[in-house]
C-alpha cells in the first residue's frame, strides 16, 4: 500500500563533527564515565532545586543546628534552615559561576595567547602581564579584585576569569609558536591567505585540544577559588548560599554543630573530584590520537 520510498536514512551521527565524537570517546573510559555521571547528577539536582524545594533556601524554623537525620539530610543551620536544601541552592550558585567564568576565561585567554600572531610587541606585552597575574599567590588576586569590585557573584566571576587567563594564554601561544614555523602556514601565507584565516583555520584547531583539557582542569580550580573566597567572607554574601558561603558559616559553629560542614564539604569534594576525573579522561583521549 505504501508506495512512497522510505526517506533515505542519513548515516547515523553524521551531524556530529569528528572532533566532537573524539571527545565523546573520553566518556567511554571508566573514569570519564563516573566523572560525567556525577557531574550530571549534581547539575540535575542543582537545576531542579527550585522544583524540589519551591519554598527556596531561606525557610527558617526553630530547630536550629540539628545533626543530620532523615528529615534533614545534612542537618539544620543556625536559623533552622535545612542545610541540604541550602547546599543544593549553593551548588546552583557554584554552577552559575562556573558556567560563566570558565568559558569566558578560556576564550579570552586563547585570544590573548594568539595576539602574538598579529603583533609581536603586543604578544610580548600580553605574556608579561599574564606572568604577573601568575605571580600572585592563589587567594590574593581574588582579594584584590574584591577590593575594587566589592564582594559578590560578579567579583567571583571576574576573579576566576582572570586567574585562568595565564594558563589558557600560554597553551594558545605554544600552539601558535609551534604551528607558525610549519611549512603549510608559510605556504598559506604565500598564497595570500590572511593572518586571521590562518589563525582560525590552522592554528586554532591545533590549540583546541590542550585548551579543552585545561578547561576541565580549570573548573576544579574555579570551584576552589569560589570556596576559598566565600569561606573567607569575600565571596557570595548571606543569605544567598554557595558551597563556600555555607562553609564560612559552618566553621563558625564548629563547636556547637560539628556536622554542619560535613554536607557542603562532601558536595564540594564530589564536584571537584568529578571534574578532575573528567579532565583526566579527556587528557588521555586527546593524547592517544
Amino acid at each position: 500500500m505504501t508506495t512512497t520510498a522510505p526517506p533515505s536514512r542519513r548515516p547515523r551521527r553524521s551531524g556530529v563533527s569528528p572532533s566532537l565524537r573524539r571527545y565523546g570517546a573520553a566518556l567511554k573510559s571508566p573514569r570519564g564515565l563516573v566523572g560525567i555521571i556525577v557531574i550530571l547528577v549534581l547539575a540535575l539536582l542543582s537545576v531542579s532545586a527550585p522544583l524540589l524545594f519551591p519554598d527556596g533556601y531561606d525557610v527558617q524554623s526553630s530547630e536550629s543546628l540539628l545533626a543530620p537525620s532523615f528529615t534533614h539530610l545534612f542537618g539544620t543551620d543556625e536559623l533552622g534552615r535545612d542545610i541540604f536544601v541550602r547546599s543544593l541552592y549553593g551548588l546552583r550558585t557554584d554552577f552559575s559561576i562556573i558556567v560563566v567564568a570558565v568559558p569566558v576565561s578560556m576564550i579570552l585567554g586563547t585570544i590573548l595567547g594568539l595576539i602574538g600572531a598579529l603583533s609581536r610587541v603586543a604578544g610580548t606585552i600580553v605574556q608579561r602581564v599574564l606572568d604577573i597575574i601568575l605571580g600572585f599567590p592563589g587567594l590574593v588576586l581574588g582579594i584584590c579584585i574584591v577590593l575594587v569590585v566589592g564582594p559578590g557573584w560578579v567579583s567571583l566571576v571576574i576573579a576566576i576569569t582572570i586567574s585562568g587567563l595565564p594558563a589558557f594564554g600560554r597553551l594558545a601561544r605554544a600552539a601558535l609558536m609551534s604551528q607558525m614555523q610549519r611549512e603549510y602556514v608559510t605556504a598559506a601565507e604565500t598564497l595570500g591567505v590572511s593572518r586571521l584565516t590562518v589563525l582560525g583555520r590552522h592554528i586554532l584547531p591545533n590549540a583546541i585540544d590542550p585548551i579543552l583539557v585545561q578547561g576541565a582542569v580549570f573548573v576544579v580550580q574555579a570551584i576552589f577559588i569560589e570556596a576559598a573566597l566565600s569561606i573567607v567572607g569575600l565571596g557570595i554574601q548571606p543569605p544567598q548560599p554557595s558551597l563556600g558561603a555555607l562553609l564560612n558559616v559552618g566553621t563558625r559553629f564548629i563547636n556547637q554543630a560539628p556536622t554542619y560542614i560535613l554536607g557542603p564539604t562532601v558536595l564540594l569534594l564530589l564536584l571537584a573530584l568529578a571534574f578532575s576525573l573528567l579532565a583526566d579522561a579527556l587528557n588521555e583521549t586527546v593524547n592517544r590520537k
Binding site: 600572585f136 592563589g138 587567594l139 582579594i143 569561606i231 562553609l247 563558625r252
Partner: peptide, 23 residues
C-alpha cells in the same frame, strides 16, 4: 596567601582576618 583562608576556617585572629575585615 593560604594563611588567610586557614585563619578564617580555624577562627584565628591573625593578619589575614584583619585584611579580610579591612577589605
Amino acid at each position: 596567601g593560604g594563611a588567610i583562608v586557614i585563619e578564617a576556617i580555624f577562627a584565628r585572629n591573625g593578619l589575614g582576618q584583619l585584611a579580610v575585615q579591612a577589605v
